[in-house]
Design a protein around this nucleic acid. Structure first.
Lengths: 143, 143
DNA sequence: GCATTCTTGCAACTGAGTTGCAAAGATGCT
DNA sequence: AGCATCTTTGCAACTCAGTTGCAAGAATGC
């Protein structure tokens, strides 16, 4: 699965192949690290229109090749789903840095359960830690 | 503290009293239940300009009379801080309903800790459960 | 090879939040 | 109270991210 070629991955997800989609997916898969935004994609692929990027990200999201990350910045972020089966990849903890605005996935830290009121139907859980990442903290300390 | 009058509450927080501010605070304190947005305030107080509401909410937030709630809807929400001291009211779990877009505070459910990487300076933690609230689930079941 | 369907880029729009500025209001000092 | 100073307010205009309508271009099915 990990080594499936990019075109096959899209096809398997039921996504029709086009030059633009393949370019977008390759960019995400091989060049973007961690969590990225629509704006990051615009920067990375300036020849592709924003609306196309948006629509393609939505398709990838719906096909569970990406998942939405809500880091509380007010900007929608995306992240490659790393999982080996078809289950939707469930929540892990996210760190988001107030200074550099990067968001990091703690892929190995799953979200602890809490008791919920009777009758609430859970669909998704977000656990976001906001603060200052170690890199930014170090920079700040030097000055 | 709970019974302090509204004017005194503002004054104690270091906020200058004006007719508009008092009206906003009374509305929040006595009419809004739970979590509300700027838009909710616009609806409730149509005579007050949006920018004034926004600036006043920001002041109340900075003075820890309100706190920001990030429910992942992309819309900033606010909630009265219920606490007896000057500590910033720390995170509790929020439920947010995909159907009615209401957000509920589980004020008694504090956010469980998770292990974090060395060097990350935590400032705030959000725990948001997204899904369908019992009221909306019941409505859906009837049909 | 042609008709049909899907994808793309452009432009224009929405919605929430935010800012500059002048008028209105509050405060401090005599 | 009268006046100068500082703060707050409403208006309009703007930013920023996301979203949509539509016509042109690309892919697909027979």
């Amino acid at each position: 699965m990990e080594h499936m070629n990019d075109e096959q991955t899209l096809r398997n997800a039921g996504i029709r192949i086009t030059a633009v989609r393949l370019m977008i997916w390759k960019q995400i898969r091989h060049e973007m690290e961690g969590v990225f935004s629509l704006y990051d994609m615009e920067e990375a692929l300036p020849t592709v229109d924003r609306s196309t990027l948006f629509r393609t990200l939505t398709i990838l999201n719906d096909s569970h090749l990406l998942h939405n990350v809500d880091d509380g910045s007010g900007v929608q972020k995306y992240c490659v789903c790393h999982h080996d089966d078809t289950r939707h990849c469930m929540g892990h903890v996210h760190l988001t840095c107030r200074i550099c605005h990067n968001t990091y996935c703690l892929t190995n830290t799953s979200i602890p359960q809490v008791p919920l009121p009777e009758g609430f139907q859970v669909e998704e859980t977000e656990y976001i830690v906001k603060g200052i990442c170690s890199r930014c903290a170090q920079k700040a300390a030097k000055q």
